[in-house]
Nucleic acid binder design. Structure first.
Lengths: 109, 109
DNA sequence: GCTATACTAAACCATATGGTTTACTATAAT
DNA sequence: ATTATAGTAAACCATATGGTTTAGTATAGC
């Protein structure tokens, strides 16, 4: 009866790291070799390689090997569940804005 | 020049745990004492207390003490940034569905 | 065939995470 | 005044995480 979503665990966990979010942004543009992913970060290649693996395990990154280069591209679909989960609470973060809107509305009368 | 969003780190990290997501769901309904949060989980009270603290540090939970009971309620606003970040990639997860739609469209002609 | 490139693997390290138990504090009820 | 309730604090533990370095493998270029 205890149920939880391992997919959401992995998605949120993968995206909780700034380096990995930066990687996601990069591979959304198109296929990027791991070398190119590594270059902007002040970090060793094995470290980046590990981040790539984490994203891959979360299903957010797809690897394609051509020759000795591994190209990475985004698979955004797991983000959908994460977004769906978050969106359920949209009404709660909108409340403040609504309250502000109502306040301003009242003021202007 | 290297810049990253600590808020997103904390939000995604806090939400990567199933117990904490369950807590979020509960406190969205209304104010809930920590005791009541703990009860459905097969977990000690200190463990739940720690999860509450993590959510509080991520700005997702607000604590209000009345007597000896601490009531928790949701502050969803940090979720907004997380959702905004995710939504940027919506086009990428929609692609597959679009492709399917196009395929079906072609088939029906 | 040799060397350079683009990685992965493995060993290691420090710190973080998620849980426990045991002890304490503050409020409430009897 | 004593006891029960609702927690937090602290110490501890096992495992995970994010990084390193050093070594190895597979492909490409000369």
């Amino acid at each position: 009866m205890v149920y939880y979503n391992q997919g959401l665990d992995n998605t949120f966990s993968a995206l909780s790291d700034p380096t990995r979010r930066a990687i996601v942004s990069k591979i959304a543009i198109g296929e990027v070799p791991i070398m190119e992913l590594a270059s902007p970060f002040n970090m060793s290649l094995p470290a980046v390689s590990k981040h790539v693996r984490v994203l891959e395990n979360a299903g957010l990154l797809i690897r394609k090997k051509r020759g000795r280069v591994q190209y990475c591209r985004l698979n955004a679909s797991p983000m959908r569940d994460a977004t769906d989960w978050l969106i359920k609470y949209q009404q709660f973060w909108d409340t403040k804005l609504d309250a502000l809107a109502n306040f301003l509305e009242e003021q202007s009368k």
